[in-house]
C-alpha cells in the first residue's frame, strides 16, 4: 500500500467512524448472539442450551414455515415491482409543473404519517365484503367483489393493495433525486424533438438510477420482512383464513415472543438473511450495467 493509499484509507475510515462505532458497540453483539441462539434451544427466560443444527432441521419439516415463506414470496413478487413503478410514476407526476403541487405531495404522503391503528381500521373497512369501498366501486362496473379478508385467495392481493398505500416515503426519495436532474438535458431533448417517454427513458431514468437501485434493494428487504400491516389486520399469528396471510416475519415474531422459541426464531432470521442477501446480490449483478454514476 502506498502512502497515498494509506492516507486515503485513514481518511475514509475517519469518515465512516460513526458507523464503525455503532457497528462494534451496538450491532455486532446482538447479531453474534442471535447467530449463537440459532444453534440453541432458547426460551428467552432460561439459559440457552446448545442443540447443534436441530432448529435448522426442524424448519425443513415445519409446514407452517414453508407456508409463511411461500406467502411472503408471492406477496413480494407483486408488491415490490408494483410499488416501485407506482412510486416512480407519481413522483414524476408530482415533479411536473402543475398547480397545487405542494398540496398533492402532502396528500400522497398522508398514509405514511397516520398511525398504524388508524390505517388498519380504514383497510378493514375498505376490504369489507359488504360495505367496503372497494366492493362498492367494483359493483359500479358490474363485478361482484370477493369478501377479501375472509377468502384465502384474496388476502394476499388485499395486502399488496394496502402496501401500495405506503409509497409516500419512496415518492419523497424520488422527488429529492429528481431535483438533481439538470434542466438543460430536457431542454436539449426538446430541441431534438423527443417525446415524454423518450425523455423519461433516456434522461430521467439514467440520472436517478442510483436512487432506483437504492429503492430496489430497500424494497427487497422491506417486502420480505413485511410485518406491521398483516400483523395488525389479521390479529397476529394465525395469519387470516387458512394461514394465507401469515408472512415470514409475523411467524418469526410469534415464534419468538408468543411461543417463546427464540432459538428457532433466530434460525429463521438467519435463513431469511441468506435469502435476502442472495436476492440483493442478484439484483446488484443484474442492474450494475444500467446504473449511471456521475463520477
Amino acid at each position: 500500500m502506498t502512502r497515498i493509499e494509506r492516507k486515503r484509507m485513514l481518511t475514509g475510515l475517519a469518515f465512516i467512524s460513526p458507523w464503525i462505532i455503532g457497528f462494534v458497540g451496538l450491532t455486532l453483539y446482538p447479531i453474534i448472539m442471535s447467530l449463537h441462539y440459532s444453534f440453541c434451544d432458547y426460551d428467552i427466560l432460561s439459559e440457552p442450551v446448545f442443540i447443534g443444527t436441530l432448529n435448522y432441521q426442524d424448519m425443513l419439516i415445519d409446514k407452517v414455515f414453508w407456508k409463511s415463506l411461500s406467502n411472503t414470496f408471492i406477496y413480494a413478487v407483486f408488491a415490490l415491482p408494483l410499488g416501485m413503478a407506482a412510486s416512480l410514476f407519481f413522483a414524476v407526476l408530482l415533479n411536473c409543473r402543475i398547480k397545487g403541487k405542494s398540496l398533492f405531495r402532502v396528500l400522497f404522503f398522508l398514509p405514511s404519517l397516520v398511525p398504524m391503528v388508524a390505517t388498519a381500521m380504514i383497510w378493514l373497512w375498505m376490504f369489507n365484503g359488504k360495505f367496503g369501498l372497494l366492493n362498492n366501486m367494483l359493483e359500479m362496473i358490474g363485478i361482484n367483489g370477493p369478501s377479501w379478508l375472509n377468502d384465502e385467495l384474496w388476502t394476499k392481493p388485499a395486502m399488496v393493495l394496502t402496501s401500495l398505500w405506503g409509497i409516500g416515503n419512496t415518492i419523497v426519495i424520488y422527488l429529492a433525486a429528481l431535483q438533481d436532474v439538470p434542466r438543460e438535458l430536457y431542454e436539449s431533448a426538446d430541441i431534438d424533438g423527443g417525446n415524454w417517454w423518450h425523455k423519461f427513458r433516456h434522461i430521467t431514468c439514467p440520472m436517478i438510477s442510483p436512487v432506483i437501485y437504492f429503492n430496489l434493494v430497500i424494497g427487497i428487504i422491506g417486502s420480505l420482512q413485511v410485518f406491521a400491516q398483516p400483523y395488525i389486520m389479521f390479529g397476529g399469528a394465525t395469519g387470516g383464513p387458512n394461514r394465507s396471510a401469515l408472512f415470514y416475519t409475523v411467524y418469526l415474531y410469534e415464534t419468538a415472543f408468543s411461543y417463546n422459541k427464540m432459538g428457532y426464531a433466530s434460525a429463521m432470521a438467519w435463513v431469511l438473511f441468506i435469502i435476502i442477501l442472495l436476492l440483493t446480490w442478484m439484483a446488484t449483478k443484474a442492474t450494475r450495467k444500467h446504473i449511471h454514476y456521475g463520477g
Binding site: M9, Q225, Y253
Partner: peptide
C-alpha cells in the same frame, strides 16, 4: 479506499436480519 465496498456490504447486511431476534 481499499475494501470500501466490502465494508459497505457489511453495513447493508445489518439491515437484512429481522429485528425481533436482536
Amino acid at each position: 479506499w481499499k475494501g470500501r465496498d466490502k465494508v459497505f456490504l457489511l453495513a447493508l447486511c445489518t439491515m437484512m436480519i429481522p429485528f425481533p431476534v436482536l
